[in-house]
Every structure is written in structure tokens, then in C-alpha cells.
Amino acid sequence: MLIVILGLSITSSWGNGHATTYRGLVRELVRRGHDVLFLERDVPWYASHRDMPRPPHGRTELYADLADLKDRFTDAVRGADLVVVGSYVPQGVEVGAWVQRTARGVSAFYDIDTPVTLAKLARRDFEYLSPELIPGYALYLSFSGGPLLQRIERELGSPAARPLYCSCDPELYAPQAREPLWDLGYLGTYSDDRQPVLERLMLDAARALPSRRFVVAGPRYPAGITWPANVARVEHLAPPEHPAFYNSQRFTLNVTRADMVRAGYSPSVRLFEAAACAVPIISDAWEGLDTFFRPGEEILISRSGEETRRYLQEVPEAERQEMGRKARARVLAAHTAAHRAETLDDYTRSVNSGRKP
């Protein structure tokens, strides 16, 4: 197929989780024989933080604004077999309306932020998607699964809302023979809703275990946060540094955005990446987590700093390593970028054949 993807970013992972998802998906679509064109709005905050300015798979083009997009890429969108518009694309409503008017093939909306999107729609915040556009997309592809998809079809009129979860790249994320530097680490951009959970699950445990070592990596944390003395800070880690970071931890922490906890069935890309490195994960609790990993065998659930502390002190080393191996096996069996590319292929073929995906 000829595939055009209009996404937030593929050239820069700074402050977003979209880039790593698109990089893996594009590579695997190309490996399946497709011709993929990725279109990214050239914005200053990504231009100054590009860790992959020339993605090696498919074709990537930057456009200056909506007029430039239409002027240069109308023919590509019109001739594509599949056109995907991602969440948080600048002027996404205008871009989506143009795609629906122009594309002759299958058009799809790829929501990497589904619970956030639905919360925004409820507030009549149409930053990148409006309710009027949803019935016009043949596919609503979602990072979240479960009952939320039925709601998108029933209440918002999507012809077919289907999961296209995040994934990991097993060629990049794998175990490494490293001596752990930290007992527990966390990788994530600051957000107001995640910070109280990070405080409860990690920082409370750090205060209770002053001899243990902890680390928090990610940008945008306010200067006023008081970090315990045994918690190291890393401002930003580019994706090539993530595997080494995970492999330098005995356990890693997963903290989920509040909207995604409420929706359930919303795994983060960090969850799959850490598991692919065979690093045991301590996660907050949310509905549907057990459909991705078996609690107690492939992942640990914590609801307090005290639970986190017990895991760090009481899980035997052999059990810790076995848990990491089992989590990695689960990811390799079901949650790689190759699995997502195959799923997208299946959905598109179903639409083209007139069947419900």
C-alpha cells in the first residue's frame, strides 16, 4: 500500500511518546512492503530537540503550516491507500477535515491519547479532533481498549473503533549485562496528575529506605519539588539511552495518567519497553492491566510507598529475575511494533473488503 501518516512527531522524542511509536510502526510497515510517507509539522520546540532528524525508514517530510501541507502533499494524500492522522497534530481539526475531503483510500484517526481526547471533547476542547470528524474516519485507532471503544462507536459515531496499542522495539529494548545503579527508577515527563502517585509510590519508599538508591528521569519537573537525598534526577534521556537506563535498575516504576487510569486498558509505551528489557515493573493499578501482564508473575502492583518498600526489600533475587524474563516473553509474543503493523494491515484490508474490522 501507499500509506501517508500525519503525526505529531517522528524526528523528536522530546517531551512526547509519539515519536518512538511512529518510528517502530513505520519501520515495520516498510518491512511488510508498504511505501510510507510521514508528514510532520515543523515546530520550534521539536526542531531544537531532534534526536532522529532523518528517520531511516520510509520517507519523512516537514511542512511549515496548513497551506504548505496542502500545496505540497495533496496528491500524496489523494493517491494513498491509507491516510492516518494522529492525535495532537497541530491544527488537527483542519488537517482531518482536509484529509477526509481529499483522500480516496481509507482514512483513520490514530489516538495515542484516547482518554485525554475524550475528556477534551467533553469540555468542548477541539484542539485536534472534533465530534463532527469522527464518523468521517473509517477507523478510529486507539491506544486504549476495553469498553471505551464501544463508547466511541455508540456515542460519537465511529464506524469502527479498534485498539492499536503502543508497542516496543525489541531490536532496541533488550536485556543488558549491567550491574544495577539504582534499586528503583522512573522515566516520564512531569504531569500534575502523575506527580502525587510518583510521590506516594516512589518518594515515600525512598524516604523509608535512605540507604537505597532511586532515580527519576524526564523533563519539565518544577524547580520547587523537594527530592529525597537518595533520589537522583536526570533531566532528559533520548530514546537510544532508554535501554541502558532500564537495565541499570533492579525494578522500574510505571505511573499512569489519571485519565488513562479512569478509562482502563491503557498501557504506556514505557511499560512495554521496560518489560522488553526484562526489568521487573512495579506499577500503579488500573482496570485491564491484567490483560497485558499477569500480576504477581509478570508485574507487581503497588498502591502505597509501603508496598513498594516491601517489594524492594523482600522479593528474592531469583524471583525478581524470573519475573523480568516472563514479562519480556509476553512482550515479544504480543506487543512489538511488528504486531501493530500486522494489525493495521488487517484493519485496512477489512475496510477495503467492506467487512467490519
Rank of each mutant, 00 (worst) to 15 (best):
A327S: 09
F245I: 02
D290G: 13
R294Y: 06
L312T: 06
E297S: 12
H335S: 10
V279E: 07
G288R: 00
D259S: 11
T343I: 13
I281Q: 11
W286T: 07
E319Q: 15
W286M: 07
E306T: 15
R250I: 11
P280H: 08
H339C: 04
S304T: 15
P243H: 06
G264C: 05
T252C: 15
S350M: 10
I282Y: 06
E342R: 15
E317M: 12
F292E: 02
N247D: 05
Y311P: 01
L289I: 07
V231C: 06
V234W: 07
D290T: 10
E317W: 11
L344K: 06
Y246N: 01
D345S: 12
R303I: 04
E287I: 12
A238K: 13
R257S: 08
A275D: 03
G305Q: 02
F245P: 01
A329Q: 13
A276R: 05
G305W: 02
Q313L: 15
A232H: 14
A333M: 00
E273P: 03
T343F: 14
R328K: 11
L344V: 03
Q249E: 12
C277N: 13
H335M: 07
S283M: 04
Y347G: 01
S268Y: 00
P267L: 09
W286L: 05
H339M: 09
P239T: 10
R328V: 05
T256K: 05
